[in-house]
């Protein structure tokens, strides 16, 4: 019996060592491959509202002002509207004459790609309502950031990679507002939507709660990014 008790103690010690070692890597469970196929989900929801905006889509032949994007995004409260904005984007694509609305069929996220808001009718003014709508669901960027950092649905490397892409996008915005970059606001919106889709595709299977929070914050965050003044505060 003694022999077994000794071995039990030793095994316990070894297990403890293994357990502590395991936590270091902290590698979560990114589900890139698995999630990609599911990414379309968010897109489908938004499409419902799309019809209503479809009419507007035809009007904005020219890329509208950046701030206008927020107009279309008013529906911050519900994720569906967000997607709607994406769906409308393709329609409002700079080149209305396009034969293929979604040239990048390769990417499932293509549908949301072209995301020029449909502010044709009501340009900048809707921005204010958007802010109001965001007020309904106060955006807590810090909390959202912490949750994203803490979630185990995304692996460490993936998180760093996403952070890199977020930083790149922020720089693009910064350049745009400083007149340095050639990137237009619709292009920035498209990049923003794609990045969000990536995050959602990683979260939606393993951390649906956070995914829904990200979706509901989508337009509020865009509201911050698309407003030079608010963006400046973000930078600071």
């Amino acid at each position: 019996m003694k022999a077994w008790s000794y071995s039990a103690v030793l095994v316990t010690l070894l297990l403890a060592a293994c357990a502590s070692h395991k936590t270091e890597p902290q590698v979560a469970q990114p589900q890139a491959a698995a999630t990609q196929p599911t990414t379309p989900e968010p897109v489908t929801k938004p499409r419902e509202p799309a019809p209503s905006e479809a009419a507007a889509a035809g009007q904005p032949v020219t890329a509208p002002a950046p701030s206008e994007a927020t107009q279309a995004t008013k529906p911050v409260a519900t994720p569906a509207p967000n997607g709607a904005t994406q769906a409308t984007k393709p329609a409002t694509a700079p080149a209305p004459s396009r034969a293929n609305p979604a040239p990048k069929a390769a990417t499932k996220t293509a549908p949301p790609v072209a995301n020029t808001p449909t502010p044709a009718g009501k340009p900048p003014k809707p921005a204010a309502p958007a802010a109001a709508s965001t007020g309904a669901a106060p955006l807590d960027l810090a909390a959202l950031k912490e949750k994203l950092k803490a979630t185990k649905a995304i692996g460490v490397f993936t998180k760093i990679s996403l952070k890199n892409q977020v930083d790149d996008l922020m720089k693009q915005f910064s350049d745009h507002y400083q007149g340095k970059g050639k990137t237009t606001m619709p292009e920035l919106r498209r990049a923003y939507d794609l990045l969000l889709m990536k995050v959602l595709s990683l979260l939606q299977d393993s951390d649906q709660q956070l995914a829904s929070q990200v979706v509901s914050s989508r337009e509020a965050i865009w509201g911050l990014l698309s407003d030079p003044k608010k963006f400046a505060t973000l930078q600071g």
Binding site: P30, Q31, F157, S161
Partner: peptide, 29 residues
Amino acid sequence: VVAALVAVPLFAADDEALKKDLTAVIALQ
């Protein structure tokens, strides 16, 4: 022997997580 039997699955799980992580990173690019 016991430790090996227990540890192998633990490391295997880590390995799987790492593979998924790298898969996501590559896809993101």
